[in-house]
C-alpha cells in the first residue's frame, strides 16, 4: 500500500511540475489557465489520493477526500471567474474564432 502511495505522490509531483513549466512557457492568460487546470485536476488528485492511501482506511482518509472534493468543485469556478473577468475587460486571446 505504501509503495502505491509513493508512486501516486511522485506522479502528482510530476504533473505539478509540468503545470509550473507550462505557466512559464505558454504565451497568454487564456493558455496559461490550461496549465493551472492541469495542475489543479490531475496533479492534486494523484498527490492527495496518494496521501489518503498512506493514511489507510479511516477518518483521516475521509477528511483528505473532503479536501479533494472541495478542490475539484471550487478550482474550476475560480479559474472561470478569472478568465471571464479577463475576457470582459478586453484581454484578447490569440485565437481563431470557431462556430
Amino acid at each position: 500500500m505504501d509503495i502505491l502511495a509513493v508512486v501516486l505522490i511522485v506522479i502528482g509531483l510530476f504533473f505539478l511540475t509540468v503545470g509550473a513549466i507550462g505557466m512559464l512557457r505558454l504565451p497568454d492568460v487564456f493558455t496559461r489557465s490550461h496549465a493551472v487546470s492541469l495542475t489543479d485536476s490531475l496533479g492534486a488528485f494523484c498527490l492527495l489520493m496518494g496521501l489518503a492511501l498512506y493514511q489507510g482506511v479511516g477518518i483521516n482518509m475521509l477528511k483528505i477526500l473532503v479536501v479533494l472534493a472541495l478542490l475539484f468543485l471550487l478550482n474550476p469556478v475560480i479559474a472561470h471567474a478569472t478568465i471571464r473577468a479577463a475576457y470582459r475587460v478586453g484581454v484578447k486571446p490569440k485565437a481563431e474564432e470557431h462556430p
Binding site: D40, A79, I83
Partner: peptide, 9 residues
C-alpha cells in the same frame, strides 16, 4: 489576470 491566476495556483 496573470497575477491572479498565479496566486490561484
Amino acid at each position: 489576470f496573470d497575477r491572479v491566476l498565479g496566486l490561484n495556483g
